[in-house]
Amino acid sequence: MKQTPIFFSQIFNHFNQKLEEKNYPLIFILVDENTHEHCLPQFLSEMEGAHTIEIIEIPAGEENKTIDIAIQVWETMTEMNATRKSLMINLGGGMVTDLGGFIASTFKRGIDFINFPTSILSMVDAAVGGKTGIDHNGIKNIIGTFALPVGTFIHPEFLQTLPKREFWSGLAEMLKHGLIYDKNHWENLINLENLNPESVSVLISDSVQIKTEIIDNDPFESGIRKILNFGHTIGHAIESEFLETENHLLHGEAIAIGMMVESILSFENELISKEELDEIFTHLVRIFGKFSIPEDLIPNLFHWMKHDKKNQNDQISFSLLDGIGKCKYDILLNENQISEGILMYNRKLANS
Results as ranks from 00 to 15, higher is better:
I298K: 07
G129S: 08
V261Y: 04
N217F: 07
L159H: 05
L40V: 09
F291A: 13
A70S: 15
L26D: 14
S169G: 05
D182K: 08
G178C: 11
L321I: 13
L30Q: 02
F220N: 13
I272L: 11
L44I: 15
V128N: 04
H236F: 01
L192M: 14
A256W: 06
L179D: 12
M1S: 15
R165V: 12
E241Q: 15
F8H: 09
Q17S: 14
F302Q: 11
N184T: 13
G325R: 12
L19Y: 15
L265Y: 10
D322R: 14
E21N: 15
F43I: 02
S240W: 00
H177Q: 05
V208C: 08
H155S: 04
S45F: 07
G235N: 00
L192W: 11
I27L: 01
E37V: 09
I29K: 03
H155C: 09
D68R: 13
K85V: 04
F146Q: 04
F302G: 09
Y24A: 00
N23E: 06
L243D: 10
H232S: 09
L40C: 08
H36I: 03
A127F: 04
T35L: 01
N81H: 14
M260H: 10
A147E: 01
K164S: 12
T282M: 01
G223F: 10
E20F: 10
F158H: 07
L228H: 10
D125T: 06
L343A: 07
D308V: 01
S273K: 09
E276H: 07
E173F: 08
N247R: 09
L121M: 12
L162M: 14
G49P: 02
M344C: 10
L195H: 00
N64A: 10
D32R: 06
K290V: 14
N247I: 00
L349W: 06
K176A: 06
A50W: 02
F146T: 01
V285C: 13
N311H: 06
I293S: 02
A126E: 01
N16T: 09
R109V: 01
L349V: 09
I190L: 10
E241F: 15
S199I: 12
Q10N: 15
L99Q: 06
A147W: 00
M95K: 00
P299Q: 08
F291M: 14
L148F: 05
V31I: 12
G101M: 03
L162V: 14
S292F: 11
L203M: 13
E213D: 11
S45Y: 02
I214T: 14
K348S: 09
P59S: 02
L265M: 08
F291S: 13
D32S: 04
I69T: 15
I89C: 07
K328V: 04
I227G: 09
I224F: 15
Y24Q: 02
T35A: 00
